[in-house]
Design a protein around this nucleic acid. Sequence first.
DNA 1: AACCCTAGCAACCGCGCGCAC
DNA 2: GGTGCGCGCGGTTGCTAGGGT
Length: 303
Amino acid sequence: MGRIPCCEKDNVKRGQWTPEEDNKLSSYIAQHGTRNWRLIPKNAGLQRCGKSCRLRWTNYLRPDLKHGQFSDAEEQTIVKLHSVVGNRWSLIAAQLPGRTDNDVKNHWNTKLKKKLSGMGIDPVTHKPFSHLMAEIATTLAPPNEANLAEAALGCFKDEMLHLLTKKRMDFQFQHPNTTPGNSTTTYINSKQEEKDDTIEKIKISLSRAMQEPDCFSFASMSGFQYALSTFGNEGSGSPWSQSMCTGSACTAADHQGHLHDKLEEENGEESEGGKELRNGSHIFNSDSILWDLPSDDLMNPIV
DNA sequence: AACCCTAGCAACCGCGCGCAC
DNA sequence: GGTGCGCGCGGTTGCTAGGGT
């Protein structure tokens, strides 16, 4: 048996509150208090759900609310408390007079999270990223080659699909052997050509890998490192493919020295992708840990 | 000027807990 | 102890204003 709805959805208004509605609600609550939220809209002459009235009152209309910017002291309090209690917004808000849980939550999600990340602190654990990276590196076992291939392929398929579908139309028609100076491609600048060339190689290798999974040697794929370092976000499939794509596990693999060593061993020479990787920014370099990402991926400057 | 993108905020939704019967 | 109800909470969604192209 499901829970009954808190109100008749057909008969209630939703969305932004008007000043008249605010007035009605405020004056009703001033006279009668907030005893039964289900009855309040009916008695106050509002076509609103009781829940909606409660939210409007607690988050906006309550006379004791502060509506301005959060002060530094308030922000510090939020960060401190969040490090202890986590996402218990109501608990945190209770320590900040005039602030609601919704206020605190919004402020955290829009400002404080980014602020902490920018300072090199993980907003979830409140530990420095360097500390987390070290933990991950020591916790995870080095992956074997089969896992890596599976993981990277899973990650790769999604990213390539994404990339290929969002790429300009000309990419679809551009044959890999297109000669320079061809009228259809002359407008492409050299950097773009270089990138397209890498993408094309990835594309060919990927389709080969899908057709001949058994004899597929992932590390022989030109541009793998480029892709790994560029598309490190939305993996799918095995846990390794997930973690491979977060960047953190890449770091772990780097730390263990297995991934790049393995790739270079098998490549025999430095791949084009490898060059790309090396040209990427070393945003994180603590002791033996390296986190290689292209500069475009520098979401969070690390201290 | 028009369009697109993004950040910030308000509001909604669903779940779980506590209380009364 | 079981059930129904009301409320609070945290996560998510949607709207809007402002900035960039």
